[in-house]
């Protein structure tokens, strides 16, 4: 579903990602772990189309999207829940969700809004509320709900636990897992929170200084000492 081959990327003269290669199968949840400043968000920006890869290629399905802008990638079914959630604070819950539906274009299905409200009943209760007035956890639900409205083929989540109360982190993880199971949605989750990723992902990569230094199931990475060695936990 997602194929990343030899990608290098960075800002200005600095190179952040070096020769990153991996793939994600249809319906798989891939976790990308790494400490701060290791290139996780840069990777998401490259996959989303906000940052051009200097080398290498990105394929979504059979389509080479390497040179495509972010808005064009949305058309290929790439949906993003960015770090900090990226909800439009001045827009209402429903307006935020409408933006997701607009991104779906021809893929949009009637009844999708009700499905999203089924996943996140709290959003239905607050449909006319301005997004900026909601709690961090509710905003995260909205950001995920908005991404689902886009009928994505590939969901990219950047630090979904960031700024969320610890008690809600596992709830968000369960929500993401439920969406993956219900819809067979291919998902890439970039996180520092190892237990959260371990509860969602079937396979993980560890990024260090912009390079993939380990890959495997969460259990294998933990037992092999990679998580302790590279993440210090």
């Amino acid at each position: 579903m997602l194929r990343v081959t030899g990608v290098a990327a960075g800002y200005g003269r600095g190179v952040v990602l070096h020769d990153v290669t991996f793939s994600v199968a249809q319906g798989e949840v891939l976790g990308v772990l790494g400490r701060n400043g290791m290139g996780k968000t840069t990777l998401i920006r490259v996959l989303a189309g906000l940052l051009r890869a200097r080398q290498g290629s990105v394929h979504v399905g059979d389509v080479d999207v390497t040179r495509e802008a972010a808005y064009a990638r949305a058309g290929h079914g790439v949906a993003v829940v960015p770090q900090g959630r990226g909800v439009f604070a001045e827009l209402t819950v429903v307006e935020n969700l409408r933006l997701g539906r607009m991104a779906a274009g021809r893929r949009a299905r009637p009844g999708r809004l009700d499905e999203v409200f089924d996943h996140f009943p709290r959003l239905a209760e607050r449909r006319k509320q301005r997004a900026g007035t909601m709690s961090g956890g509710e905003q995260q639900m909205l950001a995920i709900g908005r991404a689902l409205m886009a009928e994505p083929q590939l969901l990219l989540l950047d630090e979904p636990s960031d700024g969320i109360m610890p008690v809600l982190v596992q709830q968000i993880a369960r929500d993401i897992r439920a969406v993956n199971v219900d819809e067979g949605l291919t998902t890439v989750v970039v996180e520092q929170n190892v237990p959260m990723v371990a509860s969602m992902a079937g396979r993980c990569l560890i990024l260090e200084s912009g390079r993939i230094v380990a890959e495997g199931t969460p259990d294998a990475l933990a037992q092999g000492g990679d998580i302790e060695r590279h993440l210090g936990v």
Binding site: A48, G49, L50, A69, A70, Y71, R73, A74, G75, V78, A79, V80, P82, G86, F88, A89, E90, L91, E95, R98, L99, G100, M102, A103, G105, R146, A150
Partner: peptide, 24 residues
């Protein structure tokens, strides 16, 4: 209108609007 929602989204967060398919 939908156009208005896109425009207001663009004012608030251009990158996010782009990732939602708004052709900036």
């Amino acid at each position: 209108t939908d156009l208005g929602v896109k425009v207001r989204a663009m004012i608030q967060n251009r990158d996010m609007a782009l990732m939602l398919g708004v052709n900036a």
